[in-house]
């Protein structure tokens, strides 16, 4: 029985880790959150049998663990769920797909707002449908759509940005 529960949660560890990183924006904290989530899930008395409910349950445990940690550290949870979803003119972009790689995506995600990271994590890491994500975050489905659309655009923008700096002239001279 314990082995079955281990195997069941192991199948979600990578997705939970991705979601935890989206919340904490720090790998070590994220690892601790997944650890805490796994311990709580494995010691729980009632476990959802339905797979979608089980996934949402795990993500909820992890999110609550994150909010608890924030309360302990700052006094109040500071998860940014009040992100404005005001409509703006969309930009048409032409994008070089070669810029998109695992490395650039990971770097890009760290530069997004918490709400943008979280919506991407729920849908793309967690496999949540829009309706499931809306229920999880307690926001309308239309907000999920617009937030996700914005989040992906923002991620593409961060990937596209470049800040390679040339070496200052005097330092180049010093290298000779």
């Amino acid at each position: 029985m314990a082995n079955a529960q281990h195997e069941r949660i192991e199948a979600y560890l990578a997705r939970l880790f991705g979601y935890a990183i989206s919340l904490a924006n720090d790998r070590e904290t994220a690892r601790d959150l997944v650890q805490e989530c796994a311990v709580k899930a494995l010691s729980a008395g009632r476990i959802p049998q339905d797979e979608a409910a089980y996934r949402a349950w795990l993500f909820r445990i992890l999110r609550n663990a994150f909010l608890d940690r924030q309360r302990r550290e700052t006094g109040t949870p500071i998860i940014d769920n009040d992100l404005s979803d005001v409509e703006e003119d969309a930009q048409i972009w032409r994008y070089d797909d070669r810029m998109i790689s695992v490395l650039t995506v990971r770097l890009g995600l760290t530069r997004l707002s918490e709400a943008h990271r979280e919506i991407i994590a729920l849908v793309d890491f967690g496999g949540f449908t829009y309706a499931e994500a809306a229920g999880f975050l307690e926001i309308p489905r239309g907000t999920v759509m617009s937030r996700l659309s914005r989040a992906r655009e923002a991620l593409l923008e961060t990937i596209k940005e470049s800040n390679v700096q040339p070496m200052p002239r005097d330092e180049r001279r010093a290298m000779k």
């Binding site: 529960q5 997705r15 690892r31 650890q35 494995l42 797909d97 695992v102 995506v105 890491f125």
Partner: peptide
């Protein structure tokens, strides 16, 4: 644009990695 977004989604999913955590609780 659809191709770019599809590629982005696939890359996001490919960036997942499994953390090294201990699964306590028996077994």
């Amino acid at each position: 644009r659809v191709a770019t977004l599809s590629h982005l989604k696939a890359t996001i999913q490919a960036s997942l990695e499994t953390p090294d955590v201990e699964l306590h609780g028996g077994g």
